[in-house]
Amino acid sequence: GPMASDKRPRTAFTAEQLQRLKAEFQTNRYLTEQRRQSLAQELGLNESQIKIWFQNKRAK
């Protein structure tokens, strides 16, 4: 629909990254900035991508 703007492409996470994020989520529903930074480095992701993933996951 018209609401779907092309400005922010959805990140396609790899299965491996998703597995890691899910495991982290089961341990911590809320990430500290430090955890998020190390996860971002570990997974080669953007911190904001991880932050948003957690927000979306909590919203469900």
Score class of each variant (00 low, 15 high):
residue 27 T to E: 13
residue 41 Q to D: 08
residue 31 L to M: 06
residue 42 E to G: 03
residue 16 E to N: 08
residue 34 Q to N: 08
residue 37 Q to E: 06
residue 34 Q to D: 10
residue 42 E to H: 03
residue 13 F to R: 01
residue 8 R to E: 15
residue 46 N to V: 07
residue 11 T to I: 10
residue 50 I to Y: 01
residue 56 N to Y: 15
residue 17 Q to G: 02
residue 28 N to F: 03
residue 36 R to L: 13
residue 54 F to S: 00
residue 10 R to P: 15
residue 54 F to G: 01
residue 32 T to E: 05
residue 59 A to H: 12
residue 14 T to M: 02
residue 58 R to V: 07
residue 59 A to R: 15
residue 38 S to W: 10
residue 35 R to F: 05
residue 53 W to I: 02
residue 31 L to D: 11
residue 30 Y to R: 07
residue 44 G to S: 07
residue 30 Y to F: 09
residue 18 L to Y: 08
residue 16 E to F: 14
residue 24 E to K: 01
residue 15 A to K: 11
residue 54 F to Y: 05
residue 27 T to A: 10
residue 42 E to W: 03
residue 21 L to Y: 00
residue 41 Q to N: 11
residue 35 R to H: 08
residue 21 L to P: 00
residue 28 N to T: 06
residue 1 G to L: 05
residue 58 R to F: 06
residue 30 Y to V: 09
residue 38 S to C: 08
residue 48 S to M: 13
residue 57 K to V: 07
residue 22 K to H: 13
residue 22 K to N: 11
residue 44 G to R: 06
residue 40 A to N: 01
residue 20 R to G: 04
residue 22 K to F: 11
residue 2 P to D: 15
residue 29 R to W: 07
residue 43 L to A: 01
residue 55 Q to Y: 14
residue 25 F to D: 00
residue 26 Q to H: 09
residue 20 R to C: 04
residue 26 Q to Y: 09
residue 20 R to P: 00
residue 46 N to D: 11
residue 56 N to T: 11
residue 43 L to E: 00
residue 49 Q to P: 02
residue 53 W to D: 00
residue 11 T to H: 10
residue 26 Q to K: 12
residue 8 R to A: 15
residue 41 Q to P: 01
residue 57 K to C: 07
residue 46 N to P: 11
residue 1 G to V: 04
residue 28 N to Q: 06
residue 1 G to N: 07
residue 14 T to I: 02
residue 31 L to W: 04
residue 24 E to I: 05
residue 29 R to C: 08
residue 39 L to N: 00
residue 9 P to Y: 05
residue 45 L to S: 03
residue 21 L to D: 00
residue 55 Q to N: 08
residue 19 Q to C: 08
residue 4 A to V: 08
residue 36 R to M: 11
residue 12 A to F: 12
residue 16 E to C: 08
residue 5 S to F: 01
residue 44 G to T: 04
residue 55 Q to H: 11
residue 28 N to R: 06
residue 43 L to V: 04
residue 33 E to G: 10
residue 48 S to R: 11
residue 15 A to M: 09
residue 14 T to P: 02
residue 18 L to K: 07
residue 51 K to Q: 13
residue 15 A to P: 10
residue 31 L to Q: 03
residue 1 G to Y: 07
residue 27 T to H: 10
residue 6 D to I: 04
residue 32 T to H: 05
residue 3 M to D: 15
residue 48 S to C: 14
residue 26 Q to W: 06
residue 10 R to E: 15
residue 12 A to C: 11
residue 32 T to F: 02
residue 33 E to S: 13
residue 33 E to W: 09
residue 9 P to R: 04
residue 8 R to L: 15
residue 22 K to T: 13
residue 10 R to M: 15
residue 55 Q to M: 13
residue 47 E to A: 10
residue 44 G to M: 06
residue 33 E to I: 12
residue 22 K to A: 10
residue 25 F to K: 02
residue 7 K to G: 13
residue 40 A to L: 01
residue 24 E to S: 03
residue 30 Y to H: 08
residue 38 S to I: 12
residue 29 R to Y: 04
residue 50 I to E: 00
residue 60 K to T: 08
residue 9 P to V: 06
residue 31 L to R: 01
residue 54 F to R: 00
residue 56 N to I: 14
residue 46 N to G: 09
residue 21 L to Q: 00
residue 25 F to N: 01
residue 28 N to G: 05
residue 32 T to R: 03
residue 36 R to G: 09
residue 17 Q to D: 03
residue 16 E to R: 08
residue 27 T to K: 12
residue 28 N to V: 03
residue 58 R to S: 06
residue 18 L to N: 05
residue 2 P to K: 09
residue 51 K to D: 12
residue 21 L to A: 00
residue 13 F to A: 02
residue 39 L to S: 00
residue 6 D to E: 08
residue 46 N to I: 07
residue 52 I to L: 10
residue 49 Q to V: 14
residue 49 Q to Y: 10
residue 60 K to Q: 10
residue 2 P to N: 15
residue 12 A to W: 15
residue 32 T to L: 02
residue 16 E to G: 07
residue 26 Q to C: 10
residue 57 K to Q: 13
residue 24 E to Q: 02
residue 46 N to H: 10
residue 33 E to M: 14
residue 14 T to R: 04
residue 44 G to Y: 04
residue 2 P to A: 15
residue 3 M to T: 15
residue 44 G to D: 07
residue 8 R to F: 15
residue 9 P to I: 05
residue 23 A to V: 09
residue 2 P to G: 15
residue 18 L to G: 03
residue 50 I to D: 00
residue 53 W to P: 00
residue 15 A to V: 11
residue 30 Y to W: 12
residue 1 G to C: 07
residue 30 Y to K: 07
residue 47 E to V: 10
residue 9 P to Q: 05
residue 38 S to F: 10
residue 46 N to Y: 08
residue 56 N to F: 14
residue 2 P to C: 15
residue 24 E to V: 06
residue 30 Y to T: 10
residue 21 L to H: 00
residue 50 I to G: 00
residue 27 T to Y: 08
residue 13 F to L: 08
residue 32 T to G: 07
residue 6 D to G: 07
residue 19 Q to G: 10
residue 19 Q to N: 11
residue 43 L to Y: 02
residue 3 M to A: 15
residue 52 I to H: 11
residue 19 Q to A: 13
residue 28 N to W: 04
residue 16 E to L: 13
residue 38 S to A: 14
residue 49 Q to N: 05
residue 5 S to T: 13
residue 6 D to T: 05
residue 10 R to K: 14
residue 42 E to N: 03
residue 41 Q to C: 06
residue 1 G to F: 07
residue 33 E to C: 12
residue 51 K to W: 14
residue 36 R to Y: 09
residue 26 Q to V: 08
residue 31 L to C: 05
residue 56 N to M: 14
residue 51 K to H: 12
residue 44 G to Q: 07
residue 40 A to W: 01
residue 38 S to H: 08
residue 38 S to T: 13
residue 59 A to G: 08
residue 17 Q to Y: 01
residue 45 L to R: 02
residue 30 Y to D: 06
residue 30 Y to N: 08
residue 1 G to K: 04
residue 33 E to F: 11
residue 58 R to T: 06
residue 13 F to Y: 07
residue 14 T to L: 03
residue 41 Q to F: 09
residue 29 R to L: 03
residue 44 G to P: 00
residue 4 A to M: 06
residue 21 L to V: 01
residue 10 R to V: 14
residue 4 A to D: 15
residue 49 Q to K: 06
residue 38 S to E: 10
residue 55 Q to S: 11
residue 56 N to P: 02
residue 15 A to Y: 10
residue 47 E to Y: 03
residue 55 Q to K: 15
residue 41 Q to G: 07
residue 3 M to G: 15
residue 14 T to F: 02
residue 57 K to S: 11
residue 10 R to A: 14
residue 35 R to W: 04
residue 15 A to Q: 11
residue 7 K to M: 11
residue 6 D to R: 03
residue 35 R to V: 06
residue 14 T to E: 02
residue 21 L to M: 04
residue 9 P to T: 05
residue 37 Q to K: 14
residue 1 G to R: 03
residue 42 E to T: 05
residue 7 K to Y: 06
residue 6 D to A: 06
residue 37 Q to R: 13
residue 12 A to K: 14
residue 60 K to A: 09
residue 14 T to N: 07
residue 23 A to Q: 13
residue 13 F to P: 04
residue 40 A to G: 04
residue 32 T to D: 11
residue 16 E to P: 05
residue 7 K to P: 15
residue 1 G to D: 15
residue 18 L to E: 08
